[in-house]
Amino acid sequence: MNILISYYSRTGHTAELALLLAEEFMARGHSVDFEKIETVEVDHHWPILWRTQWYWGSLALGILSNTYRQYFIKNYKIPEVDLKPLVHPDVAKYDRICIGSPKHTILPCAIERYLRQIEGLKNKKVGYFATWAGPPLKYFEVEHLFRPAADRLERRGARLVSILALSSMYHEYQIMFIFRFLSRLRFGQPVENFSVYSEYGKNNRKLFCDELILGESDIKESKGWRRSYDGTGIPAVATASPLTTLQFVRRGYNRYVLKKPKPPFKKSDSQI
């Protein structure tokens, strides 16, 4: 099977994941070509933040209302940046296409342009892999990257069949401590457990390749973004609403104000 791996990497973490995936595909006997997506102007990290920081106020509103968040993800207009000429502008000869990127609050501007620019996407099966600082939180992380990508691929006649999101353990603005806290809060695990070389990372890389080669699932239809939060080793608590991020407030209120006894620990299905 001919596979194209297109990746956009600024700090090198996505390129590393692209290499690991390519080795996995080649070990299975598939031929792999690469497309390194590069912007014409070198992206400094502050301009990237400038393009998306207007979104952060809406993000705050999105915590309060699911409906608004869905509306916003669907309608948010992602700016584009010019790309250097592509080596493979027409992807019609490939059986499967893998696209990789980081997450810049939402879909990166370079990928927004790339998904509009490439030709021959009709009826293609596409996998999308990403590296970002934090754990694979469903809201604001998985959903903000893969849903716009799935929408844009669907518009081009392609189908998103597989997704992979792993932690790069690095944040350009040096705010990793926030993601470490969120990882403990939501998953009860250190963020290292979701990194590229963790057990979770290895298992999910294999799953990603399996699903992409099989090409039967439809990420957009499944509505669960399943593997990223329900995969190996992740408790099912992450499927709850974003307000459960604040469950520690409720727990503290129950325990210290209402003086309720601590409930006995119950293992969820995925932990058993």
């Binding site: 290499l19 390519a22 080795e23 080649m26 792999v32 070509d33 690469f34 497309e35 390194k36 250097k84 000429p85 592509l86 080596v87 493979h88 502008p89």
Partner: peptide
């Protein structure tokens, strides 16, 4: 075909 760029190998 390749826009004047060399294809990247593994």
């Amino acid at each position: 075909p390749n826009n004047g760029r060399n294809p990247m190998t593994i």
